[in-house]
Amino acid sequence: MIEIGRTILSDDVFEKHFVCDILKCKGACCIEGDSGAPLTDDEAMMIELEYSNFENYLPEKHIREVEKQGFSVIDSDGDLVTPLVDNRQCAFSFYDERGILKCAIEKAYFEGKSKFRKPISCHLFPIRITEYKRFDAVNYQELEICKPGRECGTSQKIPLYKFLKEPLIKKYGADWYAQVELAAEHLDRQK
């Protein structure tokens, strides 16, 4: 484990290779799991404020679920998360013409219709952050659905922390990420 600022990163963040291969996994991370994507209070507010900018990408069934459940819900663990459709699929997702599950929030962002890209928990996946009083635990969540991403990352020799550079900087800042890179160099020299 590596301590940087108020974060503790598991060795997997440096040692595991990963590049999302959405053509193979078909966006399974938007449908697999026990509850919706974790949200901050600010993200829940942004989803509500930006909803009209991405609502038209959602299937009618998803729109009805959002109307029924709201823009965010509290799951069985007491965490704020995105609502689900049929207790599985994120309500803010849709299937594209290739059968790949995509994020409607992110689609609106890339089309310049929204300033909010998507929840940081989604952007960082498969890294999961657990916030404690004195530190954040930054861990890799290895799931079977991400096997294509591990294979793709291994073939390209891209460590997880490099693949997730943008969302890690968004979460913790460029100075923090520069320390992650220094830690990675140090670990490489030790091998």
Rank of each mutant, 00 (worst) to 15 (best):
Leu124Pro: 02
Pro59Leu: 12
Ser155Gly: 08
Lys61Glu: 15
Arg150Asp: 00
His62Arg: 01
Lys107Pro: 05
Thr154Gln: 14
Glu142Met: 14
Asp42Ser: 00
Lys147Val: 14
Pro167Ser: 03
Ile100Cys: 05
Asn139Leu: 01
Ile4Arg: 13
Glu55Asp: 10
Thr130Asn: 06
Glu131Ala: 10
Gly27Arg: 07
Gln89Trp: 12
Leu187Trp: 11
Cys30Met: 13
Thr130Tyr: 06
His123Met: 01
Gln89Ser: 14
Phe18Gln: 02
Tyr140Pro: 04
Cys20Leu: 00
Gln89Ile: 05
Arg189Glu: 08
Glu43Ser: 02
Ile22Gly: 15
Lys157Val: 07
Lys147Ala: 10
Pro119Glu: 06
Lys113Asn: 10
Trp176Gly: 04
Gly33Val: 03
Gly112Tyr: 03
Pro148Arg: 03
Pro148His: 02
Glu166Ala: 11
Ala108Arg: 09
Gln89Thr: 15
Leu49Arg: 15
Lys113Ile: 06
Pro38Tyr: 09
Asn56Lys: 03
Cys146Asn: 13
Ile63Pro: 04
His186Glu: 15
Cys29Phe: 09
Glu15Cys: 14
Leu80Trp: 01
Lys107Phe: 07
Ile169Phe: 04
Glu181Gly: 05
Asp136Met: 10
Pro83Lys: 12
Ala44Glu: 08
Gly173Val: 07
Lys171Tyr: 02
Gly173Lys: 04
Lys170Leu: 00
Gln69Lys: 10
Asp41Ile: 12
Lys171Gln: 06
Asp77Cys: 10
Gln179Trp: 11
Thr154Pro: 05
Asp77Met: 13
Ala174Leu: 00
Glu144Gly: 13
Ser52Thr: 13
Trp176Lys: 08
Glu65Val: 14
Glu50Ala: 08
Lys61Phe: 13
Met45Glu: 10
Ala28Asn: 08
Cys29Ala: 09
Asp41Lys: 15
Phe94Lys: 00
Lys147Leu: 12
Glu50Val: 00
Arg64Tyr: 14
Thr7Asn: 06
Phe116Leu: 05
Phe125His: 03
Ile47Tyr: 05
His62Leu: 03
Glu106His: 07
Gln141Arg: 11
Glu43Met: 04
Phe71Cys: 01
Ile8Met: 13
Lys157Pro: 03
Leu124His: 01
Asn53Thr: 09
Met1Pro: 13
Ser155Ala: 12
Leu9Pro: 12
Leu80Asn: 01
Val19Thr: 04
Cys29Thr: 05
Asp175His: 11
Arg117Ile: 08
Met1Arg: 14
Asn87Lys: 14
Ile4Thr: 07
Pro59Thr: 05
Arg64Lys: 14
Cys30Glu: 15
Lys26Arg: 10
Ser114Leu: 00
Leu58Gly: 03
Ile158Pro: 04
Met45Ser: 10
Glu181Gln: 11
Thr40Cys: 02
Thr40Gln: 03
Ile8Thr: 15
Tyr140Cys: 03
Ile74Asp: 02
Phe135Ser: 12
Tyr161Thr: 00
Ala104Phe: 00
Tyr177Asp: 00
Phe92Trp: 04
Asn139Ala: 08
